[in-house]
Amino acid sequence: MKLFIALISGVLFGAGLTIAQMVNPDKVLNFLDITGHWDPSLALVMASALTIFGSGYFLLVRTKNKPLLDKEFIVSTNNKIDKPLIVGATTFGLGWGLIGICPGPALAILLTGNMKFIGFFIAMLIGMQVAQKISDTIYNE
């Protein structure tokens, strides 16, 4: 059942990204291009997702001490604004702003078979692995 939920959740996520056209790098870049031909669509995608997820979270999740199908909620309770958070978010923003592709859409557009999209995806996975190695090295000392 948990795996079925994971499947349904994945399907909805992919469908949502595509219907909202967040899989289109130009649409994302045009949202970020506030002084250009601004396309505010991404703001509405976020507002809509946030309204549903946020209200559901406070009404249906916070009122329970465990999920319906598992033992506990695996949710970060860390509240600290630390250096990795800022460095990571800045680096992510730089890469995202250069090309207009973030991890969800990067996976989605693999379906096109386009070599540049595949290249981006592989580079992204390598970037994650490098970050993992660096944090392992720091915390193991």
Binding site: F13, G16, A20
Partner: peptide
């Protein structure tokens, strides 16, 4: 389509958290 797509993403994330306790 932005509102509709966003709603689907919101429902997706909510289902995964309510049922499985995981963050999407």
């Amino acid at each position: 389509t932005a509102l509709l797509g966003g709603a689907l993403i919101g429902i997706s994330a909510l289902l995964l958290l309510i049922f499985n306790g995981r963050i999407a």
